[in-house]
Computed example of a mutant assay.
Amino acid sequence: MPLNVDARLNHFADWLATPLGHYLASAEMDWYDRTVTDIFGYKAVQLELPQLDCLRANRMAWRFQAGQTAGVALCCTGEALPFANQSIDLLVLPHVLDFAANPEAVLSEAERVLMPEGRLLITGFNPWSLWGLRRLRNGAHPAPWRGNFVSLPRLKDWLALLGFETMRAEFLCYGLPVQREKWLSRSRFLEDAGDRWWPAAGGVYCLDVVKRVHGMRLIGHKWRTAPVVTGAAVAGVDKRHVLKRDLQGSDPLMK
């Protein structure tokens, strides 16, 4: 039975070839390259969008692409990953939550398959940005403007409930969400200005989180220690001192 592929996700994959999509992809790939290069382990998985090779800078021997978009090695949904419990060291979700039917279920699956201390990398559209406002335009292209646009505070709450700890968060793409390359080039000055003056207003957020598993605390026996009677020890010393003094006084050889 063929998978019911979300049309929005396929539209978004095609949209990445547009000028605005290329601008976004270039910014995100730079972040992924900087982040995954220092993550070590045995198995790394990218879910969806093989057009963005998010694991290319990672050095794990086993790197895999899965999902529903064309070009992946394994067809599956984010809500039902075909991996064993605690078997993945690194899981990458590039805009998966933006187009998932049930984003919370995807995160629950991520928690299931990740090893303790495993890493989860997420990129998504920020609704509190110029890109988020772009969604309000009537007749907008299906992708990416009809995605979920999950806010970062809400996403962090979901992750915290699942036991994930945020290591760092960054924002990208402060430029205008327009397709004309002329206006894209003119708005590049907003990158430095936005990162300095309104850092949380970037069009895309990037999240690096780790799965924390708190271990049990071992409780051992409570050993008793014999009380030290200091007074008796001092008294013993005093008695020996008195006895020696008495002997010295009674025997002339002891003097």
Rank of each mutant, 00 (worst) to 15 (best):
P2A: 00
N4R: 08
H11R: 03
D14T: 05
W15M: 01
L16S: 00
T18I: 07
L20I: 03
L24F: 03
S26D: 03
D30A: 14
D30R: 02
R34E: 05
K43C: 14
A44L: 04
V45Y: 11
Q46W: 05
L47H: 10
L47V: 10
P50Q: 02
P50M: 01
Q51I: 08
Q51Y: 04
L55G: 13
R59M: 02
M60L: 11
R63K: 09
A66H: 06
G67N: 13
G71A: 09
C76Q: 08
A80F: 15
N85P: 11
N85D: 13
D89P: 10
D98Q: 13
N102S: 14
E104W: 06
A110R: 01
A110Q: 05
V113M: 02
L114Y: 07
M115K: 12
E117G: 07
R119S: 02
G124T: 08
G124Y: 06
F125K: 09
S129R: 06
L130K: 09
W131A: 10
L133K: 10
R134M: 14
R135F: 09
A140T: 12
P144W: 15
P144F: 15
R146L: 15
G147K: 07
G147F: 13
G147H: 09
N148G: 01
N148L: 04
F149C: 06
R154S: 12
L155S: 05
D157V: 15
W158R: 07
L161A: 09
L162N: 13
G163V: 10
M167W: 15
A169M: 04
A169R: 03
F171K: 14
G175Y: 10
P177Q: 14
E181Q: 11
W183G: 14
L184P: 06
S185F: 11
S185T: 06
R186T: 15
S187E: 11
E191C: 08
E191D: 14
G194E: 07
W198S: 01
A200P: 12
A201S: 06
A201F: 14
G203V: 09
G203Y: 12
V204D: 15
V204S: 13
D208C: 07
D208S: 05
K211R: 11
V213C: 07
V213R: 04
H214Q: 10
W223D: 08
T225W: 12
A226Y: 05
A226P: 02
A232F: 00
A235E: 04
G236W: 00
D238N: 00
R245F: 00
D246E: 07
L247Y: 00
S250Q: 10
M254A: 03
K255M: 02
